[in-house]
Every structure is written in structure tokens, then in C-alpha cells.
């Protein structure tokens, strides 16, 4: 029971952070069709910005300023970059973001050095909030949950209650129709791209100090966010949310299982294994293959349901 609660809680925190990254990506991906490989780089930038800002002004200023800076960078990328190669097709856009990944990676090293930066959880949030089964629950995790929940609420309000939100929603499922109706679709694109980058930056601010802030953090986060977006389905923020939480839970829960394929057969007196590739596959514990699970799940869902979990249209 204790293990279960703990797993669920960690899964929830991680899943919410994933959602913060994936929600922006899913909006960009669904509306503009751009597989934005640089999204995780923006997450990294957010963490580095937050490190510098919190060094000079303070964490709370960083919480506001760093995401804004990321949003501005996003807007600049969209206006001066992506928009120009939009006419050249989606693969051109994808390669554009590929190029950005290379540049951001080295730029971060050139500005902040090659070592990891000491970006720490602020002292005001660094205390145990309450005890659960004799184990502390750190306040910062509660804070992460709070920020992500607030973000979820504000996105929901923005999409449901504002005019631009309505247009974005419409553009998610019927981008051509929206533009046919005379809306300024490029402006909507810019807003969505900037907004997505802002969220990624925010994720960097609150995730960078909880995890670690180094030049490899984008590479570690990038692939899994893609999986979440595709798994959840294009054009569906709800699907993205469910997928984020699900993937967060799956990844944390799988490490708790020690069984392997061979152990499934053990009760029947069948001993599998042996010193071969097959034996290795059969006896490897599930906990060890947990990093594979998201990809397996993604391949499976795409194979049977190409639109993803709750996708509005085929991928």
C-alpha cells in the first residue's frame, strides 16, 4: 500500500511535468503540423534562464521571467524562422528545429560552460510538507503539483472562455477551415508557438532545480515528450493529459515490478532462460525494461489506432 501510494504520487508529479511540456508540443504539432524537435531545448533554456535570474533576483522572479523569455524566443523562432520555411513543407520545418537543437545545445555550453549549473530548490520551499507512512513528502513536490494544476486550469480557461481560445480549438481540428473563415492563422500560430515555448520554459524552471540543470537535459527529455503527444492523439489536449499521467505512472510503476517473462512460467514448473539472446530477453526483469515501455506502447497504439488515444483525426 505504501509502495503503491508512493508510486502513484511520484508518477503524478512526473506526469504533470510531462504534461507541461507535452501540452505545448501537442498544440504546435496539431495546429502547425511541426514535429518540434527543439521543444525540449526550450525546456533546457528555461532551466538555465531560471538559474541565472534566481541568482540575481530570486526564484519567484525567475518563475515569471524565465518562461516569458522562453515565450519570446518561441515567438521569434516562429516569426523569423518557421514561418519562412513553412512553404517548404513539414520536413523542412522539422529539419529547421533539428538545426535549432544543435545550436541551443552548444549555445548553452558556450554561455554557461560545460558543467552542470548549481540550480537549487529555493530554501523557502525546501522542507518536508507532511509525513506519509513515515516518509517525508517534500514541499517542493507539492509546489510542482500546484503550479502544473494552475497551468492546467489557466489553459482550460483560455481555450474555453476566450475568443482566441475558440479559434485555437477550431484550428486544432480544422486548420484549413479556420483560415478559410478569414482568421489570421499565422498570428494564431505565433501565439500558439510562443505559448508552447512558454510552458516548456515553465517546466524547465520548476523541473530544472528538482532534477538537474545541464546541457544533456534536453536529450533526456525530448523523446519521451514525443511519445506522450503521439500516444495521446493529435488535436486532443485531454488525450495529451491522460497520456502524460499514464506515461508518468507507467514509468514509475514498472520499476517496482521485479518479474520477468520467465517468472510468469515458473509456477508451472517451466524453467526458461539459458545463456543466449533469447534467454536474456526472457529473464530480464520488467523493472529493467521500463524505459522501453513508452515506446512499445506507442508503437502498439499507432499500429492499432493511428489517431492515438483520444486523437481527433488520424496522425
Amino acid at each position: 500500500m505504501q509502495l503503491l501510494t508512493d508510486t502513484l504520487l511520484s508518477g503524478l508529479v512526473y506526469g504533470m511535468l510531462l504534461f507541461m511540456l507535452a501540452s505545448g508540443l501537442t498544440l504546435i504539432f496539431s495546429m502547425m503540423g511541426v514535429l518540434n524537435f527543439a521543444h525540449a531545448s526550450i525546456y533546457m533554456l528555461g532551466a538555465y534562464f531560471a538559474f541565472t535570474i534566481s541568482h540575481y533576483i530570486g526564484f519567484w522572479a525567475a518563475l515569471v521571467l524565465a518562461p516569458l523569455a522562453c515565450g519570446l524566443i518561441g515567438a521569434a523562432i516562429e516569426v523569423w524562422g518557421l514561418r519562412r520555411c513553412h512553404a517548404n513543407g513539414h520536413i523542412a520545418e522539422l529539419l529547421f528545429t533539428f538545426g535549432l537543437v544543435f545550436i541551443f545545445q552548444r549555445a548553452v555550453m558556450m554561455v554557461w560552460g560545460t558543467l552542470a549549473v548549481p540550480y537549487q530548490v529555493p530554501a523557502s520551499l525546501n522542507f518536508p510538507l507532511f509525513q506519509l507512512y513515515g516518509q517525508n513528502f517534500p514541499a517542493y513536490r507539492a509546489f510542482m503539483l500546484l503550479v502544473t494544476a494552475l497551468m492546467l486550469l489557466s489553459i482550460w480557461l483560455l481555450l474555453k472562455k476566450t475568443r482566441i481560445g475558440l479559434i485555437i480549438q477550431a484550428a486544432l481540428t480544422h486548420p484549413d477551415m479556420v483560415s478559410a473563415l478569414g482568421h489570421d492563422v499565422p498570428r494564431v500560430f505565433t501565439i500558439v508557438f510562443a505559448g508552447g515555448c512558454l510552458l516548456a520554459g515553465l517546466a524547465g524552471v520548476i523541473g530544472g532545480n528538482y532534477f538537474s540543470t545541464d546541457s544533456g537535459m534536453a536529450d533526456a527529455m525530448g523523446p519521451i515528450v514525443f511519445v506522450v503527444v503521439v500516444f495521446g492523439g493529435l488535436g486532443s489536449l485531454a488525450g495529451c493529459f491522460v497520456a502524460s499521467i499514464f506515461m508518468g505512472m507507467v514509468q514509475t510503476a514498472a520499476v517496482m515490478v521485479n518479474g520477468s517473462i520467465a517468472s510468469l512460467f515458473a509456477p508451472f514448473g517451466i524453467a526458461l532462460g539459458g545463456d543466449s539472446l533469447l534467454g536474456e530477453i526472457l529473464t530480464i526483469p520488467l523493472a529493467r525494461v521500463s524505459p522501453l515501455l513508452p515506446y512499445v506502447l506507442m508503437v502498439l497504439i499507432l499500429f492499432f489506432r493511428p489517431r492515438g488515444l483520444m486523437g481527433a483525426r488520424d496522425a
Binding site: L35, D275, E280, I281, V289, V296, M298, A315
Partner: peptide, 27 residues
């Protein structure tokens, strides 16, 4: 079986699976 984005993302998944497997399986 799929095309366009679904195809691309399946291959993406296969690629990640292959790398992880290559690091994990010694034989």
C-alpha cells in the same frame, strides 16, 4: 501498415527500442 505521421512515429519508437535493446542485451 500506417503512413504519414503514424508511420514516422512508429519508426521513431522502433529506433528507440532498438537502441535500448542494443545497450541492454549483451549476447
Amino acid at each position: 501498415k500506417q503512413r504519414t505521421t503514424a508511420f514516422a512515429m512508429i519508426t521513431f519508437g522502433i529506433g528507440e527500442l532498438a537502441v535500448t535493446a542494443a545497450i541492454m542485451f549483451q549476447h
